[in-house]
């Protein structure tokens, strides 16, 4: 059966092509191996956990945002479906707590349409306040970082639609602080981090157990640990980077079901049409 062989061949070739780019990523980041974490938003059916995003937002707001900007995040986003889903009133009140400088240079209270204000006026000011290191903008940070898997495990990524390299990295980085192993020199003003490329990071350990007090809801108690904070904030940052993730995957699920059904029907049409032609 030439046809069957052709189909199998086509699949194999396309898999090969699909498999290749992962090597690029593998070679690109020579960071230590980072463990894949469990995320509610991984896989084709993943969605964000609203409560986790709200906690992550709290960590972001109380800790990260004092040095990091997130210029693409608008207050209104925080109330949109698929995200932390704060109420309209909460978003409005939150925005009003911030002073926004207008295009004309006038300061006024924020409105939901405004974007998250940057902690520093410009990059130079940010560097000066952080010992020369520039805290990166967090708008798409979770997509601008990645992890690598050794051969051949990255091939699996194409079949699991693994796209959580960023959150995995952020989680690992926030838990990667420690004392440098013997022989590793860390320059003055830098900190040892096992995950950071080069191991000398300019950011002091930002989290400590109990640093952020979550409002505990009845029944479920969320631990106040660095591990928990880092999971929450990594999820939140993934949402900031990819606010339409849930609706995108939902649409994709419908599209793929449609395509499978349509392909089945097309196959029957094709077969019936060709039934009377020897080929």
């Amino acid at each position: 059966m030439i046809k069957t062989k052709s189909i199998i061949g086509a699949l194999l070739v396309s898999m090969l092509f699909a498999a290749v780019p992962a090597v690029a990523q593998e070679a690109a980041h020579a960071t230590p191996e980072i463990q894949k974490e469990q995320w509610s938003f991984s896989g084709p059916l993943g969605t964000f956990d609203r409560d986790q995003l709200q906690r992550g937002f709290q960590v972001f707001r109380e800790v990260c945002s004092s040095c990091h900007s997130a210029r693409l995040l608008a207050f209104r986003n925080l109330g949109e479906p698929g995200g932390p889903e704060f109420t309209e009133g909460q978003v409005k009140a939150l925005a009003a707590e911030y002073q926004i400088t207008d295009a004309d240079g006038v300061k006024r209270p924020g409105i939901p349409a405004d974007h998250w204000p940057a902690p520093f006026a410009n990059d130079q000011e940010a560097r000066d306040a952080n010992g020369g290191a520039l805290p990166p903008d967090m708008s798409v940070l979770a997509k601008a970082r990645g992890t690598t898997q050794p051969f051949p495990w990255w091939i699996l990524n194409y079949f699991t639609a693994y796209s959580e390299g960023g959150p995995d990295y952020i989680h690992a980085l926030l838990n990667g602080y420690g004392t440098p192993p013997a022989g590793t020199e860390i320059p003055e003003g830098k900190y040892y981090n096992a995950v950071f490329p080069g191991h000398a990071i300019g950011m002091a350990p930002p989290l400590s157990d109990g640093a952020v007090t979550y409002e505990q809801t009845e029944g479920a108690s969320v631990p106040l640990t660095v591990d928990q904070y880092s999971r929450d904030v990594a999820s939140f940052l993934m949402w900031v980077a990819e606010p339409h993730l849930a609706s995108r995957k939902e649409a994709g699920f419908q599209v793929i079901i449609f395509l499978v059904v349509f392909a089945g029907l097309m196959y029957l049409v094709k077969r019936r049409l060709w039934a009377s032609v020897a080929h």
Partner: peptide, 30 residues
């Protein structure tokens, strides 16, 4: 026959476009 092939081709296409749009790219481009 071509249409059938196009629809089948769209399945991995949709898989990437909807579930892993960045897996074929590079994080540094963000």
């Amino acid at each position: 026959k071509d249409l059938f092939a196009v629809v089948v081709f769209c399945i991995p296409f949709a898989w990437f476009a909807f579930f892993a749009p960045d897996i074929l790219g590079h994080p540094d481009n963000y």
